[in-house]
Design a binder for these strands. Sequence first.
DNA 1: CCCATTTAAGTAAACGTTTACGTTACCCTG
DNA 2: CAGGGTAACGTAAACGTTTACTTAAATGGG
Lengths: 334, 334
Amino acid sequence: MNPTIKDVAQKANVSIATVSRVLHNLGGYSDKTKQKVDRTIKELKYQPNAIARGLINKRTQTIGVLFPDVSSAFSSELLHGIDEFVHNHNYSVVVCNTDQDGKRTLKYLQLLREKQVDGILFSSEVLKKEYYDLLEDMRVPVVLISSQTDFPNMPYVKIDDFQAAYDAVDYMVTKGHRRIAMISGTKGDPIAGTPRIEGYRKALEAHGIAFNSRYLFYGDFMYESGGRAMKSILQKAPEVTAVFAASDEMAIGALSTATQHGLNVPEDISIMGYDDLRLARMVNPPLTTVRQPLHDIGMIASGKLIDMIESGEIAQSQICAHSIVERQTVRNIT
Amino acid sequence: MNPTIKDVAQKANVSIATVSRVLHNLGGYSDKTKQKVDRTIKELKYQPNAIARGLINKRTQTIGVLFPDVSSAFSSELLHGIDEFVHNHNYSVVVCNTDQDGKRTLKYLQLLREKQVDGILFSSEVLKKEYYDLLEDMRVPVVLISSQTDFPNMPYVKIDDFQAAYDAVDYMVTKGHRRIAMISGTKGDPIAGTPRIEGYRKALEAHGIAFNSRYLFYGDFMYESGGRAMKSILQKAPEVTAVFAASDEMAIGALSTATQHGLNVPEDISIMGYDDLRLARMVNPPLTTVRQPLHDIGMIASGKLIDMIESGEIAQSQICAHSIVERQTVRNIT
DNA sequence: CCCATTTAAGTAAACGTTTACGTTACCCTG
DNA sequence: CAGGGTAACGTAAACGTTTACTTAAATGGG
């Protein structure tokens, strides 16, 4: 239906090869033929077919991105960075929402393989052996985002979760808090769970405050779980003056139930989040939190992936800088 | 590198055609050969190449989705619905972030054309003639999301913006409010701008309240603009008892600056939003708003698009039901 | 037991490119 | 002016499938 390179060749009275050559500025044709070919391309409104091209040079200029939840603010800020970088480098991105479901993940990986994507960005989920094996089989570059692995051929880009949590808690104690609760993410999560708890614990200990397991609560990173955890805190540890949540969503959930229980933040209780999503600025009062530069992380990871695709070499992992952003949810009680 | 259908054929001692036939359950082979072929497929870990397949049957099983801003909560809730439906029907989605930039949009459209997507979802932006022409040229099905057009071959799925705004304002006056300001979206926006203003005006008039242009303020749907508008309201029309914002983000912006100015919501001023994003529930107090079922809209639009792709017929446009969700930002002052 | 029909395959063209290689025709050099 | 070199093309194979067409063998009916 659409005109092909063959149609152009016929109409311009040249061979297919010549058209292809002027299309790619490869030289080997006179100025006159270039003019002629260019003209008929315009006339026919010819558009190259990337599928045919992909078949022959085994490159689709497409990367696959896996998210546990595309609709989360976390994912969409990453996606924004990814999309920006990737499109500027003439790649496209196909997104997959794994729902944190192993079966779905495997299915999507298969799909991406069949579609011959040039590389894969794997975000915010731990890389199970099962996935790793399949990925190895696919022989495409992979970079991990906000995740980590020991496999040497899979670089990651993330922040230092231990240090970020450490800094957050350290910040709170310098503000005079000593009875600090933590709302952790999913129990046992080796990336966003344990290291942040360790950071919390070590920061406390560095200030001579004993770690108290009664002050440790678990959620699942989502808003609702933050509220539930806050309820528990209010019941079981009302003496707490500050709570550090392992995600902004949980922090905001905590914030909501705190105020619903008649507490003022930060006057009665301080709250600190983790991520610095856009909505951290939007809540009331604006949330003090530790910032992950998600947009940049998305761009950096895409850059590494494209490098790997085009150079064939494996990229270095990268730890991005985090920072504390002071807003209005932690009070100075010194 | 990866095994091809040819490798399978050789190893199984059959022809390529036979392998293809068992792959697609087309019949024309004995049980024994099926066994043999299936076995060698497993042995070789053969995966079909969707690119080659796409070249021949002119279907890529891929759709393109254009968003003005992928990182917005609005887009990502749509995307979630789209992704879910689309993947369940064996399509993939490639996302493009237009940034509301005409040049970028045109570039992405070109890209999607080269990549031979089977259809396009065009979201939340008005369909300029320029885009329409290109889209026509591409000869692929298109469905509009939260947008609208008179072109007959481009169905849309959205809610009734006029009626939704009408209902919101009507709700507020039944709560006793008569001096109601509106924070509209971008001035002149024919989809999410004018109709909502009209709904506001007509609802007022239906209750015998004269429309007062002093009560109409403009933003751009984003958080910050809601705050700015609220500041203006407080200065120029302090007698207002309620404000209706044309997006949740603006409503939340208004909410923030209102409380920063020492006002309590809803005691001192009522606020109502539009969209029912996830964050409407997360703010404090939870935002009363008019709900667009974004996840469903995404699914429905995807369904229509896939229908069009597979049937060749153009689908009907659809107006989805909206609803008022009462939370805690509008006070009854009767 | 022969011929017609069905079953189980194989052959090859086609999809739209890219690219290695071949073929002219022309120019320049010695 | 013979010969090599080069510029300007054209030819055709290849990428990995699908599928229309062909062929050979098996089956069945009279």
